[in-house]
Design a protein around this nucleic acid. Sequence first.
DNA 1: AAATTATAGTTGCATTTGAAACTAAATAAA
DNA 2: TTTATTTAGTTTCAAATGCAACTATAATTT
Lengths: 149, 149
Amino acid sequence: MTKEASLQFHMSMGMLINSAHRSMTKRFVTNAMESGLDISLDQWMVLGPIWQLESASQKELGEMCLKDKISITRIIDALEKKNLVVRVPDQIDHRINRVVLTNAGKQLFYDVLPIMEKTREEVRKDIPEQDFEIFKNVLSTIIKNLDDG
Amino acid sequence: MTKEASLQFHMSMGMLINSAHRSMTKRFVTNAMESGLDISLDQWMVLGPIWQLESASQKELGEMCLKDKISITRIIDALEKKNLVVRVPDQIDHRINRVVLTNAGKQLFYDVLPIMEKTREEVRKDIPEQDFEIFKNVLSTIIKNLDDG
DNA sequence: AAATTATAGTTGCATTTGAAACTAAATAAA
DNA sequence: TTTATTTAGTTTCAAATGCAACTATAATTT
């Protein structure tokens, strides 16, 4: 590869992903705040699977959200502090925490859904469905490529 | 949008970008370390434009790297501490710093190029050129969408 | 059964990051 | 000219993140 091509690469890939990630996170939080909702994108990304799985272990949540256990611990800490979820020790395996939504957590989940939709629309404006699918596939492939490399 | 679709979204977009970004950063640093080079992806992303622009202001670097001025200040601090760059006050406008590579900085730049290429290949493995182009376009569009929203 | 290994989750510490306030210089307005 | 405004960059403080070591429980091995 020529120097120029490498430079081109470094200026596109890392930079673009980095910047898109930052912008999205920011926009989501801003949109939430404007609706009087206090939640980070990370917290939301975990709240969804909690809602979906009903009583997931932290490990399961981590796998679902592609996050390590430390991050999950902390996000659950934050959610628990806000009384949105509770940790319930598993009846059989006492190492496991089952994480379940409180009523306030469920309420927040439903309140945030339209915020998510709004953010989604802002993000996807002008991007054809087909391109977006390719985009997501490429992201998945990149993650896979780097996980078992 | 249905609840399921929103959930689907939140579990793909944010999560995937987040995860891909983390993996890439990690892989780049690991690859660099294995070659005995001590540089973060952020630092590299700024080093490139410094090399290319020859004597860029911090503002220009920020625009080029899609980073805010605070990040640039810190990255330049780090690079300067490692004697890879120096800040030279602009002769005419004393507010501006011109950032230039030292010989060590130029050397590192050339040393890191193959690392970047290696990382690039690991990232892009199995991704058709065409999809990758779409991928980058989508990222650019997302950034644009969120910047002037 | 006792000792070993593996798993789930937490904690502590050091580094990184982000937002807002700040300094210093340049430009524009009065 | 002096005052106000904008611009480039830095600093500070609080919050987020990453890594390694740690606890507690469960599953294996001997």
